[in-house]
Design a protein around this nucleic acid. Structure first.
Length: 255
DNA sequence: ATGGTCGAATGTCGA
């Protein structure tokens, strides 16, 4: 089973890339972020034509998450229980016995900004939700755009970046509180080296210069760790014409 | 030193 995550930065603009990538990479499940589409405008038919079912929780202009899968997607959840949040940033579903939780974590703008406070609170709420999910669903995958670099290996210039947004200690602590539930950063099960990124700014020719960050993560529970056979970043779509600023990441499970 | 690029929208914000 191949499970992927991709922040498409507008599904309307990126639909051709998604169609191409589904055909090339043939994932069983894909979590999308920043679809920026109202549910009534989700391209269900175009995606069905490629053999995928869709569930989605969208909003106009901002945010929006979706899960596409070859199999049936059940037990869908679109909100953190108890959190009244109009921003569409979380979507959970069960596919082939695996619980998939798709996250579009708050960016936060800058350390100290009110959006930063919202980010830290949102992360804490997600942690509490996942603490319940992992009990109910031992085979748990939590993936998406985390908007946090796990450590300095995930930053092109960690000295220059310092403790700014996406790398501040409270953000990393928020992520650590989630991994401490028993959720491993699957990419690091296979690759220890620095310099592997999933996002590059559109400005300053950042992709060409590999000035990127690894902020798109696939976390897996202990029950799935022994089944993981690879976890990679697929840079190819970032080389295409008019790309998303993020490129897909993908996990292979022996399931 | 400061702004640089996209997307959605058509001002300007969010990333």
């Amino acid at each position: 089973m191949k499970i992927a995550s991709w922040n498409v930065n507008s599904l309307k603009v990126r639909l051709p890339h998604l169609q191409q990538w589904l055909a090339d990479a043939a994932p069983d499940v894909v979590a999308l972020q920043e679809t920026k589409l109202e549910d009534s405008k989700f391209p269900v038919d175009e995606i069905a034509a490629l053999g995928y079912r869709s569930v989605y929780s969208g909003q106009k202009t901002y945010n929006g998450v979706a899960i596409l899968a070859r199999g049936e997607i059940t037990e869908v959840v679109t909100d953190i229980p108890g959190l009244d949040d109009p921003q569409r940033r979380i979507l959970a579903g069960t596919v082939g016995g695996v619980r998939v939780v798709n996250l579009y974590v708050v960016n936060g703008k800058a350390v100290g900004d009110e959006k930063y406070a919202y980010k830290l609170d949102w992360l804490a709420r997600v942690r509490d939700f996942l603490a319940e999910e992992i009990v109910r669903y031992p085979k748990l995958v939590v993936l998406g755009d985390f908007n946090i670099c796990p450590d300095d290996r995930d930053v092109y210039d960690p000295v220059a970046w310092g403790e700014d947004i996406l790398c501040s200690p409270p953000e990393r602590a928020g992520l650590a509180a989630i991994t401490a539930l028993g959720l491993a950063d699957s990419f690091r099960l296979f690759e220890a080296e620095a310099g592997h990124f999933s996002w590059w700014d559109y400005r300053q020719a950042a992709f060409r210069r590999n000035m990127g960050l690894r902020i798109d993560l696939i976390l897996i529970s202990d029950a799935l760790k022994s089944l993981a056979t690879s976890s990679v970043i697929d840079r190819t779509p970032r080389t295409w014409e008019r790309p998303s600023d993020h490129t897909p990441v993908a996990l292979e499970l022996a399931l």
